[in-house]
Nucleic acid binder design. Structure first.
Lengths: 340, 340
DNA sequence: TTGTATGCGTTATCAT
DNA sequence: ATGATAACGCATACAA
């Protein structure tokens, strides 16, 4: 790929590179004719400034790094969609990294981002991450970081989260109102902020309707299908099995659905099921599953806006703690199926 | 973000930048002690070479551009997952673009990629793209391009495709063998390579089982749900409606499912449904839908490998026409439901 | 209004 | 074995 530079234009037009540069940048002190000449020639040769040279000069890359647990997860691909749309509108590029829910990989990703000189970082923490010093250090050094969805309270910066408490409350309330009494909650990694928030919403709903909390009905399930089987087995080997399950994510909802099917537990006759999920089609495909849908696209957009504002100094630096509450829409369908 | 450079190290150690550079690069002509000194100091200061400076010097960015129609589409997010894994293993970054199925946006994306000086491009064409001269021009100039999934025959480079013909053949055959006779095919944009290949597979299966082709049973559906309603209405307003539908994608399968439901067409009693889809859970969630699963992850990996080989000159440049055939797996479940 | 020189971080080439 | 210098592409402070 031979590329045309400012120097080529200068040579061809018998001008200095500075003149050409000024002409192209639409600078002030420049003869109108010279400018026209340069612009036309540049257009003819399809000149494109080299952003790498600019980056080196201006010590910024006009790119942001995004670290997500998995791209191939509807919530995160929707979020990336939103991030991409904002970033490109504002002249930034998006470089994608996956932590695969591993703390070690997240640390390596962060290291890569720093090496790559991204102008800022958007991150949703891995399920294994307890300690965020790898991020705090960078943030203290002045690298803008914005958290979305899975956040940490240990770093004082922008955070974009869904209203997990409210979503969990409504989901639980929905199950209660449809007559369920023993509502299990299958939660994700206990380290995650979203996990805690959702559990709190669940507990609050139980409290409001005077339903006693049974600790045995709250299960954490961080890993694969195998763990889900154990969890489900435990739940149903109790004296009084649950009559409803509230799962905390897409993966958990689907895993639960599969496992229940394999175990010949009938849905919704034996248990009714509701989940936090971004699999838009889930409830459409499966009348047995109601979902709490998270506005992933909007969360991606908001977090990208916040990050770019930080980068461009349009927003006070590390002091802002801004929790953006986004509408959590409850997609409760075929409610009749949930009735006894 | 203040960053430490080779110059800082040189100054601190009273060495020249060249010596420091040599020490860091593990070069030959260098005193062992000096080397050790530099390495230790660099380690202590957490020195990281600036890839931007490297890029400027070596005229490459160590990044590849990926253009997909939509990130938020299971097939493409799985493919990107595969691309990412290979790229990072080989030291490249992945910069993501979406065409949103629009030719104009695809052209703009390509323009951006060129501006960004990516070392190569992975692309799956938009549904509106008939003309690929925007890509051909670049490829002729020496920019490595690899197509995946939605390819063009007008550019002579690597292409990674699933065996769409075979998948469509088997899907159709499956419907035939379960007793269906009037099998409709709902296809995506007629411009796309995958569309043609799948139609050919469909036609071949009909031919093999001596089922006459009814042109009215082949419908193109490029856009939203509205168009799907029209298509379904037309199909079922015929004298003899279809007794099975073979849809060409996730979106079409789900749109079809929804529309049929709204129209109170029973599945699989009235029509049985089979689709090309990467919504891994689709068939799990919906016993009415059998799926032909595309190995998106593997396709992403293969195409990334091929592109990086091209970039690094490990593969003959633009003369190679290599179609990588990947296994198309047919997920036929609850077959009994498909029987009359 | 235009040209010259410098620097961004790094490495290759050519001294020493 | 090490140092000085130029070059990658661009913008800008300064000189003319």
């Amino acid at each position: 790929m031979e590329t045309i530079t400012i120097k080529d234009i200068a040579k061809a037009l018998n001008l200095s590179t500075s003149t050409v540069s000024r002409a192209l940048r639409g600078s002030y002190e420049i003869n109108a004719e010279t400018k026209k000449l340069v612009l036309e020639y540049a257009e003819k040769l399809n000149y494109r400034p080299n952003p790498i040279a600019l980056s080196l000069k201006e010590n910024r890359s006009k790119s942001i790094g995004v670290i997500v647990p998995e791209i191939d997860n509807p919530f995160f691909s929707q979020a990336i969609n939103g991030i991409e749309s904002i970033a490109y509108n504002r002249g930034y590029h998006v470089v994608i990294f996956q932590s695969h829910e591993s703390y070690e990989r997240e640390v390596v990703n962060v290291e890569h981002l720093v090496s790559r000189r991204v102008d800022g970082v958007l991150i949703s923490l891995s399920g294994q991450t307890k300690d965020v010093s790898h991020l705090k250090e960078l943030n203290d050094k002045g690298l803008p970081i914005v958290f979305f969805d899975r956040v940490s309270d240990d770093i004082n910066t922008h955070k974009v989260i869904a209203d997990n408490y409210d979503g969990a409350f409504k989901a639980t309330e929905h199950l209660i109102l449809s007559g369920r009494k023993r509502i299990a909650h299958i939660a994700a990694s206990s380290y995650l902020s979203i996990t805690k928030e959702r559990i709190n919403g669940y507990l609050a709903a139980l409290a409001q309707y005077n339903i006693p909390v049974d600790e045995n009905l709250i299960k954490y399930c961080s890993y694969g299908l195998q763990e889900m089987e154990t969890v489900i087995s435990r739940l149903f080997s109790e004296n009084r099995p649950p009559d409803a399950i509230f799962t905390a994510s897409d993966r958990l909802a689907l895993g639960c659905l599969t496992t229940l099917k394999n175990k010949n537990v009938r849905i919704p006759e034996d248990v009714s099921l509701i989940g936090f999920t971004n699999l838009k089609v889930a409830s459409m495909l499966s009348p047995s599953l109601s979902t709490v849908f998270q506005p992933a696209l909007e969360m991606g957009q908001s977090s990208a806006e916040l990050l770019l504002d930080l980068i461009e100094g349009k927003s006070k630096m590390p002091v802002t703690y801004k929790t953006v509450k986004l509408q959590t829409e409850l997609m409760l369908r075929d409610s009749s199926l949930l009735q006894h």
